Amino acid sequence: MNSTEVLEQWADRSGAYSPDYYAYYGPNETSELIRERLESALEPDASVLELGCSSGRHLAHLHDHGYENLAGIEINDEAFEVMEDAYPELAASGQFYCDAIENVVTEFETGAFDAVFSVETLQHIHADNEWVFEELARITGEFLVTVENEGGADDHDHDHGHDEDVDGAVNYVDGDFPLYYRNWSDVFTEYGFVEVGSRSLKRDTFRVFRQPS
């Protein structure tokens, strides 16, 4: 599957792991971890961007705790209809982009956001589009948070439902969507970030990076 096909399939995603699915379950432990980490270093008026925000459960949690300058990128247009129903205040106040991450990030100014975060999103960036990681480093003013599956013993318990065909650093969601195992510390320290925290979760690795002062 090439990069264009991957984007098209995520844009049309419905049913399990769709925007409706995530809105139904609402904010979770990951939402709490992201909020706690941001609160420890940033004021509520900080500008925050989520990559692959879906219907907005993590951003809604931030909004409920006083963050107002929120933005999100999501390729599935259904997500914004779900957001308007599930999180109407977030939908009304946030800035959202219905497009692929690859098509949006180049339009932002350097250091446009105080914090940028992703939850099980960057792991689906196709190998042909790895240039986007340098762009993410460019637009991040202070903190970058990644919550991604980096591979390991619990790979097949990942809640997107893997098959058993693992080929090196690539696995497949539902036997179709590629999931790339990457060490995000290696990726973003290459672009000048300092890793200031990490934590192993059930399926993912939670990492916090900071731009050097």
Results as ranks from 00 to 15, higher is better:
Leu7Ile: 14
Arg35Asp: 07
Pro44Arg: 09
Glu195Thr: 00
Asn171His: 11
Ala137Arg: 03
Gln123Leu: 11
Cys53Phe: 00
Ala91Ser: 08
Ser198Gln: 13
Pro27Phe: 03
His58Gly: 10
Glu135Asp: 08
Ser18Gly: 05
Phe113Tyr: 15
Leu7Ala: 11
Phe133Gly: 05
Trp10Tyr: 14
Val6Phe: 08
Glu190Leu: 04
Thr205Met: 09
Ala137Gly: 11
Phe113Asp: 09
Glu81Leu: 07
Glu8Ile: 12
Asp64Gln: 13
Glu107Ser: 12
Glu89Cys: 00
Ala137Met: 06
His158Cys: 14
Leu136Thr: 01
Glu134Gly: 12
Ala115Arg: 04
Val104Ser: 11
Gln9Trp: 09
Ala23Asn: 10
Ser40His: 00
Leu49Lys: 02
Val6Leu: 14
Leu49Ile: 06
Ile101Leu: 14
Glu107Pro: 05
Tyr22Thr: 05
Tyr17Gly: 12
Glu134Ile: 09
Arg182Asp: 01
Gly168Glu: 08
Phe209Lys: 09
Leu7Thr: 11
Val147Pro: 04
Tyr172Lys: 07
Glu142Gln: 15
Glu32Arg: 14
His61Asp: 13
Arg37Phe: 15
Leu59Pro: 08
Gln9Met: 13
Ser31Asp: 03
Glu84Ser: 15
Thr140Val: 02
Asp155Cys: 00
Glu84Met: 12
Glu102Gly: 08
Gly197Ala: 10
Glu142His: 12
Ile75Phe: 08
Glu164Ile: 11
Glu8Leu: 13
Leu144Cys: 03
Arg199His: 13
Glu74Gln: 01
Ala100Ile: 02
Ser3Gln: 13
Ser55Gly: 05
Ala41Tyr: 06
Gly52Arg: 04
Trp131Phe: 11
Glu32Thr: 14
Pro212Asp: 09
Leu70His: 03
Tyr87Gly: 03
Asn129Glu: 14
Tyr67Cys: 05
Asn2Glu: 10
His158Ala: 13
His126Asp: 11
Arg210Lys: 12
Asp174Glu: 13
Arg182Ser: 00
Ala16Met: 05
Ser55Met: 07
Ile101Lys: 02
